[in-house]
């Protein structure tokens, strides 16, 4: 490689090229930011309830068992489309009732079955969480997941 280029050339290519790609990435980030806000998540308003629901989701580290839009742990089902799977994505009240029923039935204690812990949430927190999951479900994720199984 000595003949092809010197160390100084290699260093300059590294610096110059990296700055070039960082600038492209920043430009695309700005565009993607606007696209998310104005297009892909614009279908449903981001209400205070949705924001609080996201906090409920984070406080209990749900992501360390479940996946959300395919990201997270792989120990429990995908929840980015759980409201579609339950058939309640257009019915917030039903979504709340179904989620409440589910959360309050845990843990099942069935031997050999993965256990979801019992999270002691208030009705308002469960409603916020349901609204958050509905909001996430309505995000334009380019057709992912391939089917309702998530």
């Amino acid at each position: 490689m000595r003949e092809v280029m010197t160390k100084a050339m290699a260093r300059n290519i590294f610096y110059g090229g990296s700055i070039f790609f960082i600038l492209i990435f920043l430009g695309l980030t700005i565009h993607s930011h606007l696209y998310i806000v104005n297009t892909s998540t614009a279908a449903t308003p981001l209400t205070d309830s949705v924001a609080r629901g996201k906090r409920v989701w984070e406080r209990h580290a749900c992501i360390n068992c479940h996946t959300l839009h395919g990201e997270g742990a792989y120990f429990a089902p995908e929840v980015g489309n759980v409201m579609t799977r339950w058939g309640v994505v257009e019915k917030p009240d039903d979504a709340f009732e179904t989620l409440k029923g589910w959360i309050e039935a845990q843990p099942t204690g069935i031997a050999g079955r993965r256990q979801m812990p019992r999270f002691h949430l208030t009705d308002e927190e469960i409603r916020d969480l349901a609204n958050f999951l509905i909001w996430a479900d309505k995000t334009d994720t380019k057709g992912w997941p391939p089917n309702d199984a998530g």
Binding site: G17, S18, F21, I36, S40, T139, D140, T141, K142, W144
Partner: peptide, 20 residues
């Protein structure tokens, strides 16, 4: 860095980011 920076895009397929 030439590959890794824009390679971030492989995490941007299905999370609400643009199709490109």
């Amino acid at each position: 860095l030439f590959t890794g920076i824009l390679g971030t895009g492989h995490h941007y397929y299905w999370i609400g980011t643009p199709g490109y």
